[in-house]
């Protein structure tokens, strides 16, 4: 019985590390910083959660600590990547050339006027753009 739970825990940890590997691969393959953060955040969150869960299954008496750790990772991981992405955009790191739209930059006003779009888009950009 104990052996079975340990094997299940090992398999769960293995799946978690697989997701972590995919996240690392995403960091290398993605073209710009924002897409890299995307790949990094999602894969590392689930990967870390599964790895910790597997360790919790192997050492059953650590379960409380594992739950606390999972909640902390779940709350803090998205916040850190949100701050990183915001800071990257603030200091003007360019988006990749495949980008279709950037509502956050200061330029959309000009682009909208050039494209002769409807007035509604211009209005929303005036409201948000400083």
């Amino acid at each position: 019985m104990n052996q079975t739970i340990e094997i299940i825990g090992a398999i769960v940890t293995l799946i978690g590390s697989l997701f972590l590997f995919l996240g690392a691969l995403g960091l290398i393959r993605m073209p710009d910083v924002y897409n890299r953060i995307q790949a990094g955040t999602k894969a590392t969150t689930l990967g870390t959660m599964l790895s910790l869960l597997g360790i919790g299954l192997i050492h059953l008496d650590w379960y409380g600590k594992i739950i606390v750790l999972i909640i902390f990772v779940l709350v803090s991981n998205p916040i850190s990547s949100h701050v990183l992405a915001g800071a990257a955009h603030y200091i003007g790191i360019p988006l990749t050339r495949r980008t279709v739209i950037d509502k956050l930059s200061d330029k959309p006003m000009i682009r909208v006027q050039k494209e002769n779009s409807n007035s509604e888009t211009v209005l929303t950009d005036e409201k948000t753009g400083k």
Binding site: F19, M30, A39, K42, T99, K103
Partner: peptide, 26 residues
């Protein structure tokens, strides 16, 4: 949604042509 997003990232990363169409929306 978290599990779905992980498989989504895995699919995009493992596809050789890297199928992305990124942008910032409001």
């Amino acid at each position: 949604e978290l599990v779905k997003s992980n498989f989504d990232v895995a699919r995009r990363v493992l596809t050789p042509s890297l199928p992305i169409n990124p942008g910032i929306v409001e």
